[in-house]
């Protein structure tokens, strides 16, 4: 089967922060609401939650020229090609779908939370009650049914669009041209390319909770690429050495002192 890789492009320069996507996501995925308080911002819930897979982040920013900007960023899973979460997931709950996106099968999830710390974008969230981890699955069920993700469908200004990988990367750069080069395409240059990409109006460093150079954490690489194999290699090697020792040197016999030796 030929794989069609999809990319969801989030053009922050078109987003009006209407949060249609935030609600549409909850509706489609049947996620309950939390009782929140106003903490002095439009942003709410304050962060992603197990039941909030996508969140519009509101940020008041004054740029270098002293111009005020109100920045909106739809946060959520980036669907990495080199996905740290998949790398650390022991159960196979996290996996790459045929669309290149990162799916999650809660039935398999054991709630070990490894993905939570591994994800360079701080995406997966744990539910204490179900002991499972949740995150955006790029509406895998809808994609399979030939439908657009719920958030994409809800977006009134076409700030979120989805399409085949190459076409979307192309579209992102064309939009950048249209913006007179004022902006940044984010997502194609790291972790093997993400399947969610941004067009940002500002430098990535400006945005709350957006890593400038996301990558699989060194700790994960050390763990998974070195320590993990070496656990078996180490134990095996030591066992082998012991066997060799036994064969060559034999057991370390106790030299019984003969009666009357003294």
């Amino acid at each position: 089967m030929k794989k069609t890789e999809y990319i969801k492009l989030i053009d922050t320069t078109r987003c009006t922060a209407c949060r249609g996507c935030q609600v549409a996501c909850k509706q489609w995925n049947e996620m309950p609401a939390s009782r929140t308080r106003n903490f002095g911002s439009y942003q709410n819930p304050p962060d992603l939650q197990w039941n909030t897979w996508t969140l519009i982040r509101f940020q008041e920013h004054v740029d270098k020229n002293g111009d005020f900007k109100w920045l909106f960023r739809k946060d959520g899973c980036m669907h990495c090609t080199e996905a740290a979460c998949i790398k650390v997931c022991p159960s196979g709950a996290l996996y790459h779908t045929e669309f290149g996106t990162v799916g999650i099968n809660q039935k398999l999830c054991i709630g070990c939370k490894a993905c939570i710390s591994a994800c360079p974008f701080d995406i997966p969230r744990f539910n204490q009650e179900t002991e499972k981890v949740y995150k955006c699955d790029l509406c895998y069920d809808r994609l399979k049914g030939g439908q657009q993700p719920a958030c994409v469908l809800s977006c009134p200004t076409s700030a979120i669009t989805i399409g085949e990988r190459e076409a979307m990367i192309d579209k992102a750069y064309r939009r950048l041209d249209q913006l007179g080069g004022k902006g940044v395409v984010y997502g194609d240059k790291f972790v093997g390319g993400t399947h969610v990409m941004y067009i940002l109006s500002e430098d990535p460093a400006v945005y709350d909770k957006l890593p400038v150079k996301p990558r699989i954490p060194a700790s994960v690489i050390l763990w998974k690429n070195l320590f993990k194999p070496f656990t078996l290699i180490g134990m095996g090697a030591v066992a082998g050495m012991a066997a060799l020792h036994y064969l060559i040197k034999g057991p370390h016999e106790v030299h019984e002192k003969k009666e009357g030796d003294e």
Binding site: S117, P217, V220, T231, M235, V238
Partner: peptide, 29 residues
Amino acid sequence: ARWSYALHALSALVIGSFFVVHLYLGTIG
């Protein structure tokens, strides 16, 4: 949090390997 995972694996590697030595020396060795 991140380094804990690496450390856990490293510790397992060390303890696991010593465990084998210990097992050998404590029994047939």
